[in-house]
Structures are given as C-alpha cells and as structure tokens.
Design a protein around this nucleic acid. Structure first.
Lengths: 335, 335
DNA sequence: GCTCCACGTGCAATCGATTGTTATCGTTTG
DNA sequence: CAAACGATAACAATCGATTGCACGTGGAGC
C-alpha cells in the first residue's frame, strides 16, 4: 500500500540506494543536487514515508526512548512527561511510556518490555537510593535519571536544588515568626525524601534553631500515609509549622491537623513541595515550593538526546534546576 | 549483542526457520514437541528476545497503537491513559501517546507521525462533531473513539451515558428545592458539550421546569473561559443552581460566583462533571458526576484489540458506560 | 594524449524474522 | 516391492532501508 524507496526509485529512474542517500541529510552530499531535487519531488508526490522498521532493522536503532515513571495518575508526572514528549518528538524520537507503580518487580518487567522493543535510551523517574537494576541498565544503554537519583551508580540526572527549596520554605516560616517547625519526611528509599530531610536539618540549624525531636518519615508518597504519620507527629510535641516533603504529604498533614482539632493556617502552618496542579484551589490554598516539572522533563530529554548523538562517552553530567516558593493560604504568621 | 534466531538455531543444531515456528504459538504445532522443548530451553539460556523490527518488517504489523489525546496535563486523561496502557500492554501491544492541544493542525502532524511509525490502530480522544480527518483515518486503519464521538463518520466508540449523568445532576438539584437551574455548556464542537446541553434541556423539561433563558456555551474546556461565561450567565438572570458541563467549568463558575459576591453553596449550588482527581479537596468540595475514566480507557483498548484480531470487518460497535453522582459540598438545599 | 582523481551512481549484501515450497525419512498399503 | 503418505525440517525468498565497494565518466594535470 504505502510507497517504498523502490517505488520512488522507479519513478525517478534511478537505483533505490541513491534515493536512500538523497533523502538522508547525512548522505545527501554524495548525490548530485539535481538528483536530490528530483528524488525529493517524487517522494513528495508519492507521499513516501520511510519505514522505521526497515531502517531500524538495518541500523539497529529504533529512534525510540523508554520513559519509566511510577504512575501517570500521580499529578506530578503528566507535566514532566509532556516536557519529555515535546522535546523528544521534535528531535524525531518516539517516547514509550511505562508505569512501575513503585514496584521493583513491575519495573523489571516493564523495563524488560522496553528493551525488547529495542529502545535507544531510557529516562527513568523511579530511581531509589539503592537500585541495583539501574547500574545494569546504565552499562547497557544511555540512561538519564529525572527527579530522583540513585547511589548505586553514577548516572546523568536532572533534578532540582532540594537544599534551596527547603531553605526557602524554612526561611518563609521563620519569617512568619515560627520556631517550632517540624518536617514530615518522604520515604527514606527515595533520594528526594532523604535530601529534603537533610536539607531541613541544615536549614533549621542555619536559622539558629534546633530541629524538632526526631524525623517523621512516611512509608509512601501518599495522602493516606501522611495522615497517619502527621497524627503521630502532632501528638509527639508542640509544633506550629510543618514543612512536608511533598504536596501529598502536606495535604495529609492538613487533614491530620483538622482531625486533631487544629485549623490551618490559624493554628498550624503547612508547606508542601512540587506545586502540583490544583494546589491553588484546595482548602486552604497550599503554600508550596514550586518545581519546574515540565522543564525537568525537557532538560532530561535534551540530555539523553545529546548522549544518543555522541559516540564518545562523555563525562556524567548532572543538571540542577532551581525551585521557587509559592506563598498561598496554608501559612500564616505565628499568633 | 543480543541473541537472534540464528544463534538459537545454531545451539540446537537446526534451521532458524524451525526455531521461529517452534517459538510462535500459532505455528508451534508444525514442529515436533521434542524440538520445541529443546528450542525453548536454548532460547531461554541465550535470553533470546525476538526483534520487533525484524518481525514487523516481515509481517507489516508493528504491534503498536497510537493514542491521541488533547493534552496529558488535563487531569481527565492520565487515568484514561492508564486504562489503555494496562490493557494494551497485557495484550502485547505498545501504546504511542501523542497530544494535539486541541489544534487540528497539530493533530494532523502527530497523527502523521503515528502513521509513519506504522501503528496498527488508533484510539482517539480528540473527536470533534465535524471531523473530516477521522473519516479518512477510519478507512485506513482500525480506529476507536473514546469519550467524544464524531458525526462525520461511523466509528466504534466508548463513551458514557451523558443523558443519564446530566439527569442525575438535575434531579439532585431539584430534590434540593432548586428550580432556577442553568447549564454552563461545553464547546459546541464537542459531542460531549453538545449532548450534555441537550440532555440538560430534556432533564429540565422532564422535571416540568422550563430551561433558564438561552444556553451559555463556553469556547474552551477551561477554568478561565468558564469564569467569563459564568459571569455573563449570572448577570443575565436569577439562578440558584448551575450544572456545569465539566469540572473545570464548575470551578470557573464557583470563581465567578465568588467574584459576583455569591457564596457557594450558600447562595448558589454548582455541579461538575467527570470527577477529576482532587475535586474532593477543592473549596468547596465539588459535587460532580463521576465518570469511570479508567474503565473507558480499558474498554476502548479491548475494543480496538478485538478489531485488530478479526480479519472480517465487524459491525461498528458502541460501548456506553454509566456515570454516577458524587454529592459533596458545592450543592445545598435552596434557602 | 595519457594517467589519475573525484564525483555520482549502481550493485549486492545485510539486518532478523517469517512463510511458501521442497526435501527427507520412516511407515503404511495396494 | 513400489508408490503414496504424513510428519518434520530445511531451503530460499522476502519485507524495506542502508552502506561498503566497484564502476564509469569527465575533467584536471603533466
């Protein structure tokens, strides 16, 4: 049905190989300009579209990139995926999206299916601090980590400056007069959870305060997990403000506070992290650290593309973007 | 690097063609059980994974499906996409996701890229009532519409019962004592906008009421567009309740009401449609018609898979799922 | 007037899997 | 005893694009 190189060649009256060279920008200098013009015209007329399976078979490159995320329905990821998609597509690559649901087994399966599809590279948003699989993958094909990183191996990554983000949050609260500030930490297996917790300690000490008791890490990045942990935290001691490790945890904290008879922001201030969609419309509108999610995706795609282009192995590169504080209604001056 | 059929054949000491037949469940009956067993073992040992580009080239099937959505960052779609992904993946197909941003030109481009990739079929969530491109596509390959349908041509589809959903909303409001109920309609180019508007008229008349003045269609499914249209609507006459054509429009309506000095639900009740994530956390928690978004996706994928399997053209099939009313805080009895 | 080179193009092999046709073998049967 | 048969498996062609190599032509240089 669809036209092939041979069809174009027949129309122009030349050999298919010449048509191939003429149409490929990298080799078209080998063909006379007149022939190139004729080939272009004929290809256009036949609406010739190269068959990626044929060229992929020959060149062993699929022009396809695997994108591994925990779960597309987590509102953090759609923007990131858009950033990735837009950048990859513009460069002629097709992203293949898979979800791991944060299960290492599922991850192994879906990554397997990506490799079966012969993806040229991977963008991985599911890194854990300990993550043996990633080391393996990094040896086999270009891999870029987004958002989270791993300690298992050195891989290029695009992340944000957690240190800075958390400091913005803490400084904001201190500026409002708070001194009894607690951190509801993310899962410790996640680099973001870990780094934000450390950044919190540093920021607090930087303000001449002492960290509230012990850290309160949750087991999952979910509203439900946060609710329970926050309840314990609130019972554990007097706290007038909470820096949550992400927006879900902040929402859970607010619910827990409400459950404990505290009103936010009147009795307790809460700050989130990420600024997911609709966080301006929840009750109360959430003060949060905004992460340039779409840019992270775009940057990761660019990084991977550069890896795919270069033959020579380049030094492992880390890109860090800067978050900003968005002040809304969930934080208020200490009364 | 990776093992091929030939490698497996060499290990077993037979011809590659036989290995191919042994490994393919559809042809393995042509090979003796003992050979099949030996082949399976060798394939396992070499960790042979078939090259989809090679088999796709030969069979002219990519085992790939295009999924065309307006915009992944619209919270309605991630769930739908998950439903599609999970179902397709289980069946050995890989979804290729593209965004059109509701631009027909962008759509033409991205659909073009899908066809260049030789997708075996399409799942399209961007149908407009007038949509010439869809007729063309439907002739060229299997296409299933989701959520929205078109009048340009008859294509299989998976949608919800708008009639029923809107009736649930209207009946709820009437039950609360409202009689001056308006509809903030979606764009008329969208079948959902159109059908919900018609369903509204019917439901109102079914309650023995008269529809409030004229319809108020917005130009886009956005909070901003809704805000403006809702302002005009509120000025146009007394209204105690609004059925919005989707959640974004409901949010815009609530903002407009607030701007006009009305409190929701005290002075005005508002109902949304879809029940996007976080609609339980906005202020006030949104009463809305919940659509089984993930099921829609899964059902569409199943429908497409059946089309891909059958050689014989089957009659065009339409699946309709039933929505339900979720009552929250944005509706209250008429005072 | 000859060699040599550069340029443009053709030729043919190749990527890995699939599939229609053919060959082989052991067995059965008239 | 030969032909026929069924079951396996080998052979070879094919899908469409790419690419190393060979070939021919025309022009430059001596």
């Amino acid at each position: 049905m669809a036209a092939t190189l041979k069809d174009v060649a027949r129309v122009v009256g030349i050999h298919p190989a010449t048509v191939s060279r003429a149409l490929n920008p990298r080799t078209s200098h080998l063909v006379s300009p007149e022939t190139v013009a004729k080939v272009r015209k004929a290809a256009e007329a036949l609406d010739y579209v190269p068959n990626p399976m044929a060229s992929g078979l020959r060149t062993a490159r699929s022009h396809t990139v695997g994108v591994v995320i925990p779960d597309l329905t987590n509102p953090l990821f759609p923007s990131m995926v858009r950033g990735i998609q837009d950048t990859l597509t513009r460069a002629g690559y097709t992203p293949l999206l898979v979800n791991t649901d944060n299960h290492p087994d599922t991850e192994a399966t879906v990554v397997g299916s990506l490799r079966a599809r012969r993806v040229d590279g991977l963008i991985v948003a599911t890194a854990r601090r300990e993550h043996p699989l990633l080391a393996e993958l990094g040896d086999a094909l270009p891999v870029v980590l987004v958002n989270r990183v791993t300690e298992s191996t050195a891989l290029p990554s695009v992340t944000t400056d957690e240190q800075h983000g958390i400091r913005l949050a803490v400084d904001h609260l201190v500026g409002l007069g708070h001194s009894e500030i607690a951190h509801l930490a993310g899962p410790t297996w996640s680099s973001t959870g870990h780094e934000r917790a450390q950044a919190f300690q540093r920021a607090i000490r930087g303000q001449g305060l002492t960290p509230a008791k012990k850290p309160f890490p949750v087991t999952a990045w979910s509203v439900e997990a946060a609710r329970e942990a926050a309840l314990k935290m609130l019972r554990a001691g007097s706290v007038t403000a909470v820096v949550a490790a992400n927006d879900q945890l902040a929402l859970g904290t607010i619910e827990a506070a409400r459950h404990a008879g505290l009103r936010c922001p009147r009795d307790i201030s809460v700050i989130g992290y990420n600024d997911m969609p609709f966080m301006n419309l929840v009750d109360p509108p959430l003060t949060t650290v905004r992460v340039p999610v779409s840019d992270i995706g775009a940057e990761a795609a660019r990084l991977l593309l550069s890896l795919l282009r270069d033959e020579a192995p380049s030094p492992v590169k880390h890109v860090r973007l800067t978050p900003e504080l968005i002040v809304r209604g969930s934080t208020a001056p200490l009364r």
